[in-house]
Design a protein around this nucleic acid. Sequence first.
DNA 1: ACCTGAACACCGTTCAAGT
DNA 2: ACCTGAACACCGTTCAAGT
Lengths: 189, 189
Amino acid sequence: MDYRRHPGQRAGLDRDAVVAAARDLIARDGFAALSMRRLAGVLGVAPNALYSHVAGREELIDLLLDEALADVEVPSGDVGAVDGLRQVMTSTYRLLLRQPDLVPQYLARQGARGPHAQRLGGILTALLAEAGVPSAARQPAVRVLIVHTVGSAAFAVPAAGTHALGAEQLDATFRDGLGWLLAGIVTAD
Amino acid sequence: MDYRRHPGQRAGLDRDAVVAAARDLIARDGFAALSMRRLAGVLGVAPNALYSHVAGREELIDLLLDEALADVEVPSGDVGAVDGLRQVMTSTYRLLLRQPDLVPQYLARQGARGPHAQRLGGILTALLAEAGVPSAARQPAVRVLIVHTVGSAAFAVPAAGTHALGAEQLDATFRDGLGWLLAGIVTAD
DNA sequence: ACCTGAACACCGTTCAAGT
DNA sequence: ACCTGAACACCGTTCAAGT
């Protein structure tokens, strides 16, 4: 329609602006409301203008998922490997809870594959090594920890009906499960 | 278009036939291919004919999810509560692996809410009680076990790129994680 | 009750063209 | 390189009508 712009005129858009607008749109109206056309509408451009900055909807979601992991905190100082693992996973859990609608998408695409996800994987592997977990057992251990953390975050989102457990109880459930898994990981032969 | 049928003429459709056709469609072409219009096409009816048997696409997916849990095996005889829990979760895990495309949808809607899911929840709660887990700790324990099982199944699905872990390793990872969680659940004060 | 016809309000993506 | 215009091939769902 009328975008008050002619073909060739710039709209001042770039990749980060598109991703940021998508994040805001989901935060306001939920993941189901994220469509390329609606997003373009919010940004005041024609729908196909987005394809100059993003390969398509799938890539956009990949970017959103990876961005959600941007602020994972590396364990501070020398708290020990196991406590370090606990801190990293708890930080990740809290980050994921901030963008609840996005979390199930991690499972739908078997985890994020972007740079932030890779960085997180590297941190976990190093901490497992420091904790004395043998080389071959580290990748399975990372999987178990990620499954628990992402799964807990996905289940923490209230569904249509009110759920029985409160936020504190959900946090406690995540924390307990994490502790049991860590105990098993570092104790395994 | 032309369905070789007039308004008012039956097509011999019912709720189960719709759900079964949806399951087959996903098995053949993937979850992304499941649309009401395509499903109607497979069944040889007009798109809106499906709404006589199903409230809409969301309910159809709910039915598919619950149906996937129909064949969970209850533990045989007196194997003990913990081994019983292990058997039920392993049976559920194997069932979920049969319909891989469907699994992420469990997380997207915080678990299934149908009769089969409720039955599974009841079995788990009873076994936890038998294992001596105090009443208040049972619901969180069920959550942890479900998160691990569904999450493991979701992550077991190969993504676009080939994945490093083989099927045996994935099974071992699920089994180990389950063991650690069960140990923690029955040991907790 | 179960189906068709027709329509409404959407989708993601592509291709050509303009600057 | 970044945008618009226009189009293609889809969606889920609803409403009226027919038997």
